[in-house]
Design a binder for these strands. Structure first.
Lengths: 231, 231
DNA sequence: TCGATGCTTCGGCTATCGTCGAACAATGAA
DNA sequence: TTCATTGTTCGACGATAGCCGAAGCATCGA
């Protein structure tokens, strides 16, 4: 009947919200593990595994085994191109992001993305660090400047040199789910989140499975002093 | 919990086989009626009506009322672009729709892909143009060489400099459905197809909705003289 | 060797959505 | 008017596919 490539099968892969969240998370160009992607999509690892297998079979993503992790990345810049094209059409049709709505504003403000801070405050922190020249962002990589290392040591007692890891970058830009802008990931992002917790500036919500991060009144003040929007 | 420009909703629209058939049928650029599209998709008019309403709401197609008919067309060349991109990905993944078979050899030989020549002859033309160094293909882009511009002007009276378009490239490689190789798209591809039609070398099949392109005896000879396989 | 972690497979539940029959509305022609 | 054609709405059915709990591999570290 019809000849040609089966577009609909590929489109259907992108058509599922969970898979779509995974794909957009991968649009940074960086590879993410299966669990990270599951968290990004807000689903359990089992479900994610099923989705990832389908995306792989559809040629949209490629796996790379490293130890017991499975890193996935978009197979091709063309895939990202198509996703961008779809974004354009969706935007034009007014299908803009259904703001998670007042349903869970806390999740938009601050949440855990794997092990680091995401949401409005996460994005704000990365912005502020750039503005204060604590980090330098070149093409694809981010690294701490000398000022940045001093800042981490003096203000937050974080030894930047101790953060090197064989397979994980110290700094990494991670596309924010709700904000559509980058926040800081990598071992530094994780270390910062850990320090915030230790200092009792912030704590993960006690609801099991919740990714919300609650800042204390004092914590919010101290955070703003370091990474405030008006720095 | 979905955020982001809602690309999954748009993708899901394309993800249904019936709707996808309608969209590909519209890639000729021609407007088709609701019943024609229903037939093209192999579904009843009731079902088609529902699908068309969804596609319209999603901004993928636009209706135009004429008497008791409703003509639908793709809203935008960008939509066609995304569909082409999906074709490319699907083809790479080997998700071809099986029926390419000997079912319609004419369709495999020459057909319209949106507004340019596709099929065996389309692939052959691009190959020949490369061989004659009329175009230069770098990493991701294709462009006309000086020789190419002269060739277009002298042999086909096409002013290459007049083909620039704000949102569409002059040359673009488009993965061919049946051949699994590239043919020439972009404004140049469209201009060439237009010239072939004007010169009466080729004509679109008169069957409504058909994408077959019929070459005249003379047209085939002239085409072969310019883009023959043994050039 | 033992546990811990990351990921996958399996089975069953549920909800979504595509599908069509039937009836209805709108247009055009006799 | 009356009829034919085109397209839509409504209701119900059924298959597809997403989801998770539980269990099973695989890998790493000790």
């Amino acid at each position: 009947m019809k000849a040609g490539p089966d577009i609909s099968r590929v489109a259907a892969l992108v058509g599922d919200p969970a898979r779509c969240n995974m794909l957009t998370a991968l649009m940074t160009g960086r590879a993410l593990t299966a669990s990270e992607l599951a968290q990004e999509a807000g689903i359990t690892p089992q479900t994610a595994s099923s989705h990832l297998a389908k995306l792989e079979a559809g040629g949209l993503i490629e796996p790379e085994k490293q130890g017991r992790h499975r890193y996935y990345r978009l197979t091709d810049p063309d895939v990202a191109g198509v996703l961008e094209g779809l974004q354009g059409i969706a935007a034009r049709a007014g299908h803009m992001r259904v703001r998670t709505g007042p349903k869970d504003p806390a999740l938009r403000r601050a949440r855990i993305c794997y092990d680091h801070l995401a949401g409005d405050l996460g994005v704000q922190m990365l912005d502020s660090m750039k503005r204060q020249r604590l980090i330098r962002q070149t093409k694809q990589t981010i690294e701490l400047t000398g000022d940045g290392k001093r800042f981490m040591a003096e203000e937050l007692q974080i030894d930047a040199d101790a953060l090197t890891h064989p397979r994980r970058p110290v700094c990494k830009a991670c596309l924010d789910w709700s904000e559509r802008r980058h926040h800081l990931a990598g071992t530094l992002g994780a270390a910062l989140m850990g320090r915030f917790t230790e200092l009792k500036w912030a704590a993960r919500d006690t609801t099991p499975g919740s990714r919300v991060v609650n800042f204390s009144r004092n914590g919010e003040k101290r955070f703003a002093a370091l990474f405030g929007a008006n720095e």
